[in-house]
Amino acid sequence: MARIKEKAYEWVFTALAFSSLIFLVGIVIVLFKEGFPIFKAVKAGDFLFGRFWYPTYEPPEFGIFPLILASFWVTLGALLVCVPLGVGSALYLNEMASFRQRSVLKPMVEILASIPSVVYGFFGMMIVAPVLQDLLHIPTGLCAFSASLVLGIMATPTVCSIAEDALSYVPKSFREASFAVGANRWQTLTKVVIPAAGSGISTAIILGMSRAVGETMTVLMVAGGSAVIPKSIFDPVRPMTSAIAAEMGEAPMGSMHYHSLFAIALILFLITFAFNIAAEIISRRFRIKLGHSG
């Protein structure tokens, strides 16, 4: 009886473990199946590099280049915010903060991570955008710049906590050795600790990037939504995620518009997939490196 029970548990947990694999495969199959028909109507090159996104007109235009650029710009802008903030606070937390400061700051960073993205979006739309609009005298605060700012703040906790983990994996002996040969604290930090945790910090940045590029609600609310190739960072933009979210509800099922949204999702998936693989490769290298010397 006990053995049967044990076997049953084993089965249940095996099934649970494999279920995420099934979901992943299912999603990939659906993305390919629903996304591919668009390439029968539009050439892949015209789809990726077309400059106009008028999916509901007659004849429709399915050029997602403005959407790709929008995602790219907003993600880049978010990185400029979240890398200094995230890595900087990780360094402070790990290297300089006293135990008491740490016990307050670390949970704060984690709370920042648990705020739902719609709240960030609301905050961006109601506060950040109007303030920037008045401050910078731009026609509208709903633009790539505001979206980058809000996304950057959102991605900061991700970057901070992974970078902090990476720093804490650096063996104490590294620091001790550095101090022993007469290096000061700054030299130890820049010449020993950061290089040793370098790949872990890179992983943190890449995961922050994949968080920013895939974020939907915030950009839908803050980026403005114009499908136009941005000329400046203060232009409103329409990242890929917000185009999907805004249009999927009303695109007739099975229409070219519907398939084109799946094709956008497919491209987005491939981008984040590449980011995650890069992060995985780098973090593996990191483990081996520390394993050898630590």
Partner: peptide, 11 residues
């Protein structure tokens, strides 16, 4: 006629 492409499109 088409809406200018830099219009803010809202959901």
């Amino acid at each position: 006629a088409k809406v200018r492409p830099d219009a803010l499109m809202q959901a």
